[in-house]
């Protein structure tokens, strides 16, 4: 073969060019920002048994038939503070709606810090302390905080959002829960 080196050089060049093209073409798309980021989507929601600060217990099985929004958060994460007004607004609007329940579960925080934050920020919805929270955060395969899930009345996870909730995503979540009865 004449000048095999030339062919080797061009072959290497072709590989590099292909790699560059793959990169360039795929740089534009960003599938990150949507609801369906959790692998648990469509699966039945893992049960959990948590305690609230007033001593009452919260079990997912007891909430069957209702749409449940589970919000993993803690007192020291910035995006959690960012989404707080959204949660508070939503709770005010749906306080009397019995078919929807919101539950805050601490992720990587101490009970004391959670209780202080919940009190200071007037989080009126059900907030669990850290007993049993750790196994719930693992069971739901959470990847950070804040992360929220919506569980249909039949007990299936039908939506998830990693990152702070917005009014738009909040409505989407509730809709998803109510549609998938």
């Amino acid at each position: 073969m004449k000048h095999p080196l030339r062919w080797v050089a061009l072959a290497v060049g072709a590989v590099v060019a292909i790699f560059a093209v793959i990169l360039a073409v795929n740089v534009g798309t960003d599938p990150r920002a949507d609801l369906n980021t959790s692998r648990l989507l469509g699966k039945s929601a893992p049960d959990f048994s948590l305690a609230r600060f007033d001593g009452t217990k919260v079990r997912l099985a007891d909430l069957a038939g209702k749409t449940v929004i589970v919000n993993f958060w803690n007192s020291w994460c910035r995006p959690c503070r960012e989404e707080l007004p959204v949660l508070q607004q939503w709770y005010r609007e749906h306080r009397t709606d019995d078919s929807v329940v919101m539950l805050g579960i601490p992720r990587d925080d101490s009970s004391r810090a959670i209780r202080d934050a919940a009190r200071a920020d007037q989080m009126e919805w059900a907030v669990a302390n850290d007993q049993g929270a750790k196994s719930a955060t693992l069971a739901y395969a959470t990847r950070g905080q804040p992360e929220s899930f919506v569980i249909s009345p039949r007990g299936r996870i039908v939506g998830s959002v990693l990152g702070p909730l917005t009014p738009g995503t909040m409505d989407q979540m509730v809709q998803a829960g109510q549609q998938n009865a």
Partner: peptide, 13 residues
């Protein structure tokens, strides 16, 4: 990469 590979290919003989 292109310049380097190109030069090598050019001078291959």
């Amino acid at each position: 990469m292109a310049t380097g590979i190109g030069l090598i290919a050019w001078r291959a003989d």
